[in-house]
Design a protein around this nucleic acid. Structure first.
Lengths: 220, 220
DNA sequence: GAAATCGTTGACTGACCAGTCAATCTATCG
DNA sequence: CGATAGATTGACTGGTCAGTCAACGATTTC
């Protein structure tokens, strides 16, 4: 439909979307970004849809023009981010590098996600990843995919003799992911010091600890 | 006040409380236990106070006779359990045993808590431990105490040369606790197999992995 | 420039539910 | 027995808020 616009005001600014379409997608983004801040500040249950609209500077009804429900706003935020992570994990998995580097890349990605947008990661962890009765249950299959991919990497390393075989891969994957998530939780609750250096050390710590414990050379 | 009952119906059954007092504390317990089931099944926000009353088989108003609010019911459940854990950790900390055994005792306690009452642990993890905007924030000091105690154990082991010094103790403590909590989360979401054997292996796994990664002999 | 399309507005409604309270019941004691 | 205190009941209230909708505004098309 946008292709059927021969004359127009010319495509001077490259891939133009037209004032209307552009404004529309801008507003949607505006609402999503506002929702992240509001959810992070007050929590999903404690905030009202009007808080999101106010934060975004739009009318209440507009939220319902772009999203079917309050839930859908959170669903969208979660899926946007989680799918990027899944893509990263799949990419890493395809590469021909040692497990330690693969796990390091995953830890880096998660920590950098927090560094880049702490509010979003707070919302995802607090409202989705552990919410066994609401959103966590809805997205369980998507969440699980990440755990399974990591578990696969560990299982492969065990088959290759790099990791001890006596620790079940799925359990080790959960422990690895849980360790990272708890470090983010520590930052979210302000129990751990933040800042560039601490983020870098945290990445290293998780990989060093978990790989150190899983690698065969330290087996007895 | 209960001591001021000389005659009564005799203390045949040992430390008797009197029909009234006994019935009262029974009902309170009944409500707490019912609340655990309801919170685990529906989640704190999704359930109504009437659901708790119905599950307990008492009238709606009685919940408010024993608790000032719906929140207080959850607060009570959390504190009851968390304080038992804090006591266990402190006890373990006093003993003169290797860190590995201390951490093993803590992992055992948490896993056994889940085995003994999965619903309660589900509620604590899902509704409190990670709830940065509601209960988690209220109980942050209490939660933190556990992390700090574990961090202290690790720091001591580092000072003794048993653990590598280059991994900050507080971070390692969070990673350790997070690994365990994520295993419980795996059971809660039914992503990991349960049963006696798996519980025992999980305890071993976490300690083996984390200690294996922290101990000096595997340092390079 | 008229019509169609879609973005935008915010007042309104219907459902829901935490917490209150006055009434009723039951045990204990003088 | 009668009185007192505490346990128990459940109907009711007041406030909250997700989602609706009818109207208005801006842009594009013919």
């Amino acid at each position: 439909m946008s292709a059927a616009r021969p004359g127009g005001r010319s495509a001077v600014e490259g891939a133009e979307l037209g004032a209307r379409a552009k404004s529309a997608s801008d507003k949607r983004r505006l609402i999503l970004d506002a929702a992240v801040r509001v959810f992070a500040r007050q929590g999903f249950h404690a905030c009202r849809v009007s808080d999101i609209a106010d934060e975004a500077g739009v009318a209440y009804g507009l939220v319902y023009h772009y999203f079917a429900s309050k839930d859908e706003v959170l669903d969208t935020l979660f899926l946007e981010r989680w799918n990027v992570m899944l893509e990263l994990i799949r990419e890493v998995d395809r590469e021909q590098i040692p497990v330690r580097e693969k796990l390091s890349a995953i830890a880096s990605f998660i920590v950098d996600s927090y560094r880049h947008d702490p509010d979003l990661m707070k919302v995802i962890i607090v409202e989705v990843t552990r919410a066994a009765n609401s959103f966590g249950n809805t997205h369980i299959a998507t969440i699980r995919e990440a755990y399974d991919l990591i578990g696969g990497m560990i299982a492969k390393a065990q088959a290759e003799g790099v990791f001890k075989p006596e620790i079940e891969a799925r359990f080790a994957a959960m422990a690895f992911y849980g360790a990272i998530e708890q470090l983010l939780t520590g930052w979210i609750f302000e129990l751990l010091p933040q800042g560039e250096e601490n983020f870098e050390r945290a990445k290293w710590l998780v990989v060093e600890t978990v790989c150190g414990g899983l690698e065969t050379r330290s087996a007895e």
